[in-house]
Protein backbone atom coordinates (compact mmCIF):
# COMPACT_ATOMS: atom_id res chain seq x y z
CA UNK A 1 0.00 0.00 0.00
CA UNK A 2 1.26 3.50 -0.75
CA UNK A 3 3.09 5.68 1.78
CA UNK A 4 2.83 9.45 1.48
CA UNK A 5 5.04 11.56 3.72
CA UNK A 6 5.46 8.68 6.14
CA UNK A 7 1.75 7.86 6.33
CA UNK A 8 0.62 4.49 5.06
CA UNK A 9 -2.74 4.61 3.27
CA UNK A 10 -5.03 1.60 3.16
CA UNK A 11 -6.09 2.05 -0.45
CA UNK A 12 -4.56 2.86 -3.82
CA UNK A 13 -7.55 4.96 -4.71
CA UNK A 14 -7.98 8.65 -3.97
CA UNK A 15 -11.35 10.18 -4.73
CA UNK A 16 -12.46 13.77 -5.30
CA UNK A 17 -15.58 15.19 -3.66
CA UNK A 18 -17.01 17.51 -6.36
CA UNK A 19 -19.98 17.16 -8.70
CA UNK A 20 -21.91 14.32 -7.03
CA UNK A 21 -25.72 14.39 -7.34
CA UNK A 22 -26.05 14.60 -3.54
CA UNK A 23 -23.95 14.29 -0.38
CA UNK A 24 -25.64 10.96 0.31
CA UNK A 25 -24.46 9.59 -3.05
CA UNK A 26 -21.00 11.00 -2.42
CA UNK A 27 -20.81 9.06 0.85
CA UNK A 28 -22.07 5.90 -0.86
CA UNK A 29 -19.44 6.22 -3.60
CA UNK A 30 -16.71 6.58 -1.00
CA UNK A 31 -17.86 3.48 0.80
CA UNK A 32 -17.97 1.51 -2.47
CA UNK A 33 -14.54 2.73 -3.58
CA UNK A 34 -12.72 1.97 -0.36
CA UNK A 35 -10.73 5.15 -1.06
CA UNK A 36 -8.34 6.14 1.70
CA UNK A 37 -8.02 9.80 0.78
CA UNK A 38 -10.59 12.44 -0.18
CA UNK A 39 -9.51 15.52 -2.08
CA UNK A 40 -11.44 18.68 -1.35
CA UNK A 41 -11.49 21.99 -3.15
CA UNK A 42 -11.41 24.82 -0.69
CA UNK A 43 -12.22 27.54 -3.20
CA UNK A 44 -15.19 25.91 -4.82
CA UNK A 45 -17.07 25.13 -1.66
CA UNK A 46 -15.99 27.50 1.05
CA UNK A 47 -18.01 30.65 0.49
CA UNK A 48 -16.17 32.09 3.45
CA UNK A 49 -16.40 31.53 7.16
CA UNK A 50 -18.79 29.17 8.82
CA UNK A 51 -21.18 28.98 5.88
CA UNK A 52 -19.39 26.09 4.21
CA UNK A 53 -18.98 24.11 7.39
CA UNK A 54 -21.84 21.67 6.67
CA UNK A 55 -19.84 20.35 3.77
CA UNK A 56 -16.67 19.99 5.82
CA UNK A 57 -18.61 18.07 8.46
CA UNK A 58 -19.84 15.73 5.79
CA UNK A 59 -16.31 15.15 4.46
CA UNK A 60 -14.97 14.50 7.94
CA UNK A 61 -17.70 11.95 8.50
CA UNK A 62 -16.37 9.91 5.56
CA UNK A 63 -13.62 8.80 7.93
CA UNK A 64 -10.85 9.12 5.35
CA UNK A 65 -7.79 11.34 5.24
CA UNK A 66 -8.45 14.73 3.68
CA UNK A 67 -6.17 16.14 1.02
CA UNK A 68 -7.20 19.74 0.36
CA UNK A 69 -6.35 21.13 -3.06
CA UNK A 70 -5.72 24.48 -4.64
CA UNK A 71 -8.00 23.79 -7.63
CA UNK A 72 -8.68 26.77 -9.84
CA UNK A 73 -5.56 28.72 -8.80
CA UNK A 74 -3.70 30.38 -11.64
CA UNK A 75 -0.78 32.01 -9.84
CA UNK A 76 1.81 31.24 -7.20
CA UNK A 77 0.34 33.78 -4.83
CA UNK A 78 -3.20 32.46 -5.17
CA UNK A 79 -2.08 28.88 -4.65
CA UNK A 80 0.03 29.71 -1.60
CA UNK A 81 -2.80 31.72 -0.02
CA UNK A 82 -5.30 28.93 -0.67
CA UNK A 83 -2.90 26.37 0.83
CA UNK A 84 -2.66 28.43 4.01
CA UNK A 85 -6.43 28.69 4.25
CA UNK A 86 -6.73 24.94 3.72
CA UNK A 87 -4.21 24.22 6.47
CA UNK A 88 -6.32 26.24 8.86
CA UNK A 89 -9.69 24.80 7.87
CA UNK A 90 -8.60 21.16 7.79
CA UNK A 91 -5.73 21.15 10.26
CA UNK A 92 -3.45 19.27 7.86
CA UNK A 93 -0.10 20.13 6.33
CA UNK A 94 -0.96 18.05 3.25
CA UNK A 95 -1.80 20.05 0.17
CA UNK A 96 -2.49 18.99 -3.39
CA UNK A 97 -0.90 21.80 -5.31
CA UNK A 98 -2.58 22.85 -8.54
CA UNK A 99 -1.42 25.88 -10.45
CA UNK A 100 -3.23 26.06 -13.75
CA UNK A 101 -1.38 27.49 -16.74
CA UNK A 102 -3.82 27.01 -19.58
CA UNK A 103 -7.55 27.61 -19.52
CA UNK A 104 -8.62 25.10 -22.17
CA UNK A 105 -6.59 22.09 -21.06
CA UNK A 106 -6.24 23.09 -17.39
CA UNK A 107 -2.62 22.07 -17.90
CA UNK A 108 -0.36 22.84 -14.95
CA UNK A 109 2.00 25.80 -15.21
CA UNK A 110 5.28 24.00 -14.41
CA UNK A 111 7.23 27.16 -13.61
CA UNK A 112 4.69 28.50 -11.13
CA UNK A 113 4.18 25.00 -9.76
CA UNK A 114 7.84 24.55 -8.87
CA UNK A 115 8.02 27.98 -7.29
CA UNK A 116 4.86 27.47 -5.24
CA UNK A 117 6.06 24.01 -4.19
CA UNK A 118 9.34 25.46 -2.94
CA UNK A 119 7.58 28.17 -0.91
CA UNK A 120 5.10 25.75 0.61
CA UNK A 121 7.63 23.01 1.39
CA UNK A 122 9.86 25.55 3.13
CA UNK A 123 6.83 26.59 5.15
CA UNK A 124 6.23 23.07 6.47
CA UNK A 125 3.64 21.88 3.96
CA UNK A 126 3.71 18.37 2.56
CA UNK A 127 3.09 19.03 -1.08
CA UNK A 128 1.36 16.74 -3.62
CA UNK A 129 2.01 18.58 -6.90
CA UNK A 130 -0.34 18.10 -9.85
CA UNK A 131 2.12 18.06 -12.73
CA UNK A 132 2.65 16.78 -16.26
CA UNK A 133 4.65 13.61 -16.97
CA UNK A 134 7.71 15.76 -17.81
CA UNK A 135 10.88 14.28 -16.29
CA UNK A 136 12.71 17.56 -15.86
CA UNK A 137 9.81 19.22 -14.07
CA UNK A 138 9.49 16.13 -11.89
CA UNK A 139 13.14 16.42 -10.86
CA UNK A 140 12.74 20.10 -10.02
CA UNK A 141 9.67 19.39 -7.91
CA UNK A 142 11.63 16.81 -5.92
CA UNK A 143 14.44 19.35 -5.49
CA UNK A 144 11.83 21.83 -4.25
CA UNK A 145 10.97 19.45 -1.42
CA UNK A 146 8.09 17.36 -2.80
CA UNK A 147 8.10 13.70 -1.79
CA UNK A 148 5.14 12.68 -3.95
CA UNK A 149 4.40 13.44 -7.61
CA UNK A 150 1.01 13.47 -9.28
CA UNK A 151 1.37 13.44 -13.07
CA UNK A 152 -1.75 13.80 -15.18
CA UNK A 153 -3.12 11.00 -17.34
CA UNK A 154 -4.99 13.48 -19.52
CA UNK A 155 -6.60 16.92 -19.03
CA UNK A 156 -8.84 17.25 -15.95
CA UNK A 157 -12.36 15.97 -16.53
CA UNK A 158 -11.60 14.72 -20.06
CA UNK A 159 -11.82 10.99 -19.30
CA UNK A 160 -9.29 10.28 -22.06
CA UNK A 161 -7.18 7.94 -19.95
CA UNK A 162 -3.38 7.65 -20.09
CA UNK A 163 -2.65 9.58 -23.28
CA UNK A 164 1.14 9.37 -22.99
CA UNK A 165 1.93 5.89 -21.67
CA UNK A 166 5.55 6.21 -22.77
CA UNK A 167 6.01 9.36 -20.66
CA UNK A 168 4.29 7.87 -17.62
CA UNK A 169 6.38 4.70 -17.90
CA UNK A 170 9.58 6.74 -18.19
CA UNK A 171 8.65 8.71 -15.09
CA UNK A 172 8.06 5.51 -13.15
CA UNK A 173 11.39 4.07 -14.25
CA UNK A 174 13.32 7.27 -13.61
CA UNK A 175 11.96 7.70 -10.05
CA UNK A 176 11.45 4.17 -8.75
CA UNK A 177 11.36 5.20 -5.08
CA UNK A 178 9.10 8.24 -5.26
CA UNK A 179 5.39 7.66 -4.63
CA UNK A 180 3.64 8.44 -7.93
CA UNK A 181 -0.08 9.03 -8.42
CA UNK A 182 -1.86 9.36 -11.74
CA UNK A 183 -4.10 12.35 -11.24
CA UNK A 184 -6.72 13.59 -13.72
CA UNK A 185 -8.00 12.30 -17.03
CA UNK A 186 -9.02 8.82 -15.92
CA UNK A 187 -12.39 7.90 -17.42
CA UNK A 188 -12.69 4.13 -17.27
CA UNK A 189 -11.72 1.38 -14.84
CA UNK A 190 -9.35 -0.01 -17.49
CA UNK A 191 -7.37 3.26 -17.35
CA UNK A 192 -6.94 2.77 -13.61
CA UNK A 193 -5.83 -0.83 -14.09
CA UNK A 194 -3.29 0.29 -16.72
CA UNK A 195 -1.81 2.86 -14.31
CA UNK A 196 -1.43 0.15 -11.67
CA UNK A 197 0.17 -2.24 -14.17
CA UNK A 198 2.74 0.47 -14.92
CA UNK A 199 3.66 0.47 -11.27
CA UNK A 200 1.98 3.67 -10.14
CA UNK A 201 1.26 3.77 -6.42
CA UNK A 202 -2.23 5.20 -6.63
CA UNK A 203 -4.75 6.99 -8.81
CA UNK A 204 -6.82 10.06 -8.09
CA UNK A 205 -10.14 10.53 -9.83
CA UNK A 206 -13.37 12.44 -9.45
CA UNK A 207 -15.46 13.13 -12.56
CA UNK A 208 -15.44 9.51 -13.79
CA UNK A 209 -17.23 8.47 -10.60
CA UNK A 210 -19.26 11.58 -9.76
CA UNK A 211 -20.73 11.95 -13.26
CA UNK A 212 -21.45 8.27 -13.86
CA UNK A 213 -25.12 7.28 -14.00
CA UNK A 214 -24.57 5.22 -10.85
CA UNK A 215 -21.61 6.75 -8.98
CA UNK A 216 -21.44 4.06 -6.29
CA UNK A 217 -21.41 1.24 -8.85
CA UNK A 218 -18.69 3.02 -10.82
CA UNK A 219 -16.65 3.55 -7.66
CA UNK A 220 -16.81 -0.19 -7.01
CA UNK A 221 -15.76 -0.90 -10.61
CA UNK A 222 -12.72 1.32 -10.13
CA UNK A 223 -11.86 -0.37 -6.85
CA UNK A 224 -11.87 -3.76 -8.60
CA UNK A 225 -9.78 -2.43 -11.49
CA UNK A 226 -7.20 -0.92 -9.14
CA UNK A 227 -6.97 -4.19 -7.24
CA UNK A 228 -6.63 -6.17 -10.48
CA UNK A 229 -3.96 -3.88 -11.92
CA UNK A 230 -1.89 -3.81 -8.73
CA UNK A 231 -2.16 -7.59 -8.28
CA UNK A 232 -1.11 -8.11 -11.90
CA UNK A 233 1.91 -5.88 -11.41
CA UNK A 234 2.88 -7.66 -8.20
CA UNK A 235 2.65 -11.06 -9.93
CA UNK A 236 5.49 -10.07 -12.30
CA UNK A 237 3.90 -10.14 -15.77
CA UNK A 238 5.45 -11.86 -18.76
CA UNK A 239 7.46 -9.87 -21.26
CA UNK A 240 5.67 -9.15 -24.52
CA UNK A 241 7.39 -10.42 -27.67
CA UNK A 242 6.98 -9.92 -31.39
CA UNK A 243 6.60 -13.55 -32.46
CA UNK A 244 4.18 -16.21 -31.40
CA UNK A 245 5.46 -18.67 -28.81
CA UNK A 246 3.29 -21.75 -28.66
CA UNK A 247 2.33 -22.66 -25.18
CA UNK A 248 2.40 -26.33 -26.13
CA UNK A 249 5.77 -27.58 -27.43
CA UNK A 250 5.84 -28.76 -31.07
CA UNK A 251 8.62 -31.27 -30.57
CA UNK A 252 7.42 -34.74 -29.97
CA UNK A 253 4.13 -34.46 -31.77
CA UNK A 254 2.99 -37.88 -32.74
CA UNK A 255 2.10 -37.15 -36.35
CA UNK A 256 3.60 -34.65 -38.72
CA UNK A 257 1.90 -33.74 -41.97
Amino acid sequence: MPRFYGVEIRSRMMLGTAQYPSPAILAEAFRASGAGIATVSLRRESGGGRAGSDFWTLIRELGVRVLPNTAGCHSVKEAVTTAHMAREVFGTTWIKLEVIGHTDTLQPDPFALVEAARILAADGFEVFPYTTEDLVVAGKLLDAGCEVLMPWGAPIGSGLGLVNPYGLRALRERFPDVPLVVDAGIGLPSHAAAAMEMGYDAILLNTAVAKAGDPAAMARAFALAVEAGAAGRAADPMEPRDMAAASTPEIGRAFLE
Binding site: P23, R44, E45, S46, G47, G48, G49, A51, G52, D54, F55
Partner: peptide, 9 residues
Protein backbone atom coordinates in the same frame (compact mmCIF):
# COMPACT_ATOMS: atom_id res chain seq x y z
CA UNK B 1 -25.16 25.13 -6.81
CA UNK B 2 -22.52 25.56 -4.17
CA UNK B 3 -22.23 23.54 -0.97
CA UNK B 4 -22.60 26.47 1.38
CA UNK B 5 -25.36 27.97 3.47
CA UNK B 6 -24.17 31.47 2.71
CA UNK B 7 -26.91 33.75 1.42
CA UNK B 8 -25.34 37.11 0.84
CA UNK B 9 -22.74 37.35 -1.86
Amino acid sequence: MIESGERGR
